[in-house]
Structures are given as C-alpha cells and as structure tokens.
Design a protein around this nucleic acid. Structure first.
Lengths: 238, 238
DNA sequence: CTGTATCCATGGCGATACTG
DNA sequence: CAGTATCGCCATGGATACAG
C-alpha cells in the first residue's frame, strides 16, 4: 500500500491507491491503449523497469488492472474499476493543460512526442495511397532530429531513420513548437505565420498537413483568459 | 517542486503539482470551506503542522491558493486555478466511494466524522427551535464516545461534552456504522432493521432523525453491481 | 492561534546490471 | 521481450518541541 491516511473520506481512500509517483501515468497509458510491458515503458521512459513492475503489481492488487496471458504474451488490461479512472485522468489532464502550461526543456522529448503523434494521427484525413511526412527538429541533438511518418491505408508507422520512400511534405520546426502544437497551446496558423514551422510541400499538400497531424484530445480544452498566475519564476523565499 | 516527470503530457504536469502526499486532501478541505490553518489541521489531523505549512506554501507557489490576511488573521483561499480542482476532487471521490469501499479500523475517526457531520447537517430539515441529538459510539474509547449536536436556527454546534440541554433523540451505534451511513455505504433503514443503530426518541422524532443527519455529497453515487474485486485480502505473493 | 525548528529513520526511487 | 536483483543515496515526512 502507498501509505495510508487514516481517513474514511472517499477522496483519501482513492489517493491511498493513486497518489504514488507514476501511478496515474501508467493508468493514462493503459487508457490510451498500451497493453504490453514494453508499450508501457515507452510511455513512461524515465521510469525504471523495476519500479514499473512494482506499480503494476500494486495496481493489480488494488483491482485496477488485470494481468493476463494472451497468445503466450503477458497483457495488462484495465478492469471496470480501472476503466472508471478515465474520469479522474481526464479531469487532471484538463486542469493541467489549463493551469500548468509552462514547459521546461526537460519536459520535451522527441520520442514521446512521436509516440503520441502516432497514436493520434487521424488516418482518415490522409490520402489513401502511401503518404510520407518528414519532421526535422532543428533544436536538438542529431540522433533524434529527423523522423518520418508513413501512413498507408490505415497503418501508421513512425521511423527515426529514413524508410526510403518519397516524401510528400517536409516539416521543419523546433521540438518545442511541435509539442505546443500537439498540446493545443499554439495554433498551426500562428506557428506558420510566425515562421516557427516551415512546410516544404506543394501548396495543396502544405495546406492539408495541419489536418494530417493530430493533436492531443485535450488540445481543444479552452484556456483561461488571464494567463497563468505565476508559473515557477518569482514567488521567491518568504 | 514535487519531483518532475520530464513529460509534456498535461496529466504528468498536473501530477507534478498534485501527486505529493496530502496535497489533494488539503485542496478538498479548502473546497469544502476551510479557511484557517486550524480548520485545515482539523481536516487532516494526522498531518504535522510543519508539513501542512510546507504544502500550503507549495500550493501557493503553484498558484492554487492565495494566503491573505483578513481582519488580521491569515486566510487561505483557492484561486480560480484551485477552484477548478473541484472536478478532479469530485472524480476522485466518486471513484473512491465506488471502488475503495473497505474501511480499516484505522480509517475510522470520531472527530473527523463529527466534523464532517457538522458540515453537512441540513439545518432546514430541523425544527426551528433548538434541537439536540446525542450520539453514543459503543465501540470506542470513552473519551470520544459521546457527542451532542445542537441545532438552533441556522447554527450547528457539535460538542464532545454535555452542553446541558434537553436531548430530543439519542442515537446509539458503532462508529463504523455511523461512518458507513454518512458515506452512503449503508442505508439508515438497513441499519435500523439490523439493529445496528438504535434511536431513542418519541416515534415522530425517531422517524425524522434520518433526515436531520446529513450525508456525504458522494453518498448517492451509485455503487458497482458486483461487489469489489479484491479489497486487500488475498492476491498473495507471486 | 499560526506557524517554525530540528532531528531522525524509513523507504522510495533512481541507476545499473543481469536472467529466463 | 518481460521482467528481477541489488545497492545506496537522499528526500520525505513523522514526531516533538518550541516561538511570536
């Protein structure tokens, strides 16, 4: 058990299960479709496998998820109890996107972004024929700078090395800008206007690209009118 | 900062602020009307004042609350940002009451229960004249066994020693049963039928008492049809 | 009443390496 | 691929006493 609170209040009882570090991020991953240990690791790459394993066990004991073997492969799936955490995770996400907007450089991660991008690509908006868009992030180390998204039919592939196909559109931007766009902090139009993104493609393709690249489901949560109170700067010592 | 996750995901950013132990319970207290340091302490009695102070400071920095002085007395109040955590707290409470129902003896606390009771007494259901109901918990140490709820007009008082007024109804039950009733885990009618509660009062008063004693706002959250999966028993070692 | 100051033990968690 | 095994640090937070 995560430590107890000694309170009968349902919020306290819920937090006994959920307030440990990483726990709700694992639930988030399961809610968005991850099933295997390796999928989960990709979703929480900064977590050690030992700790991930421990959390999964604890969540199993709490009745949130179930570990089953499917075709000889372990699969983690949410129980009804776990499914119902969607309300909690959604509420947290909506609050977070509204009130905790400042992203530090440590929060940016090209692998995570491309993984999220892959999960939210609206394939139906893409041409039926195989279509390739390349991403170049100008502000990060060469290793993770270039990516290719290949959509053919209903299949989406994200590669970190050139798959060799013809490229229909080349996006060039910073990791930060692409992240902001995906989160819905910044509109495509705004980014293009300010030249934070360049789209190298025939005019009609260039116009379509923003509809090809998806966004977080939280992107359309309306933002507070006043900007943040104080992000982390100021508010010094008392 | 509570440790960071290194993720741009809004859920992760939210949890950086909220996943530390006690944090959301403090928010819960503020949401239910506590304003002063001592009120908050009463709501989270197992927390040391040092730690409470630390959390309040962190929440202030995060923009969730504001510390102001009102008539020379410090007051903690939620900002818009903090107010909006109501959605999160409600979702957690609803999930908790449905899926984390097993209460250990450590979770029962007469002071907390009476404090909650006081906050949820539906004064409008009581007679206008001063009315007194006594509570006796048969299963706990003498010190916290007897309580008196005094309602006169719109004022509610809860005493742990005899205020000396005539008593209109005497409830005798266990702390556990009363807690279950307040949470909505057990219906009044059921408790009475099973003789888990006795109401010593004239017949019409006895009938009214269940409408006098309030319940958690989460009490009417429907419970899952199947009982819990596994509370904490079983699910042994792997 | 509204906090601070200190002290200490625990265990959480990060890092790394390794196994079936 | 799906985890386990170890190890060691340091921060968390519980307890207690004290101050303005």
């Amino acid at each position: 058990m995560g430590s107890t609170y000694g309170q009968f209040c349902p919020v306290a009882k819920a937090m006994e299960v959920l307030d440990e570090r990483w726990t709700l991020l694992i639930v988030r991953e399961l809610l968005s479709g991850s099933q295997h240990f390796s999928d989960l690791r990709r979703g929480v790459p900064k977590m050690s496998p030992t700790l991930l394993s421990k959390r999964l066990r604890r969540l199993e004991r709490a009745g949130v998820l179930r570990r089953v073997s499917r075709r000889g492969r372990p699969v983690y799936e949410l129980t009804d109890c776990g499914e119902e955490l969607r309300g909690v995770v959604d509420a947290l996400g909506a609050w977070g996107v509204r009130w905790v907007g400042e992203l530090g450089d440590e929060d940016l991660d090209p692998h995570l972004l491309m993984w999220d991008l892959k999960r939210t690509i609206p394939v139906r908006s893409w041409p039926r024929r195989r279509t390739v868009v390349s991403f170049t992030y100008t502000d990060i180390e060469p290793r993770a700078r270039r990516w290719w998204v290949v959509v053919s039919g209903d299949d989406v592939d994200v590669c970190d090395e050139d798959p060799g196909y013809d490229v229909d559109a080349r996006l060039t931007t910073t990791l930060r800008t692409m992240t902001e766009i995906w989160r819905g902090d910044r509109a495509w139009a705004d980014a293009v206007r300010r030249s934070l993104v360049t789209v190298d493609a025939p005019r009609d393709v260039a116009r379509a690209v923003p509809t090809w690249v998806g966004q977080s489901t939280l992107a359309r949560v309306p933002r507070p009118e006043r900007p943040q109170p104080l992000p982390t700067s100021q508010a010094g010592v008392r």
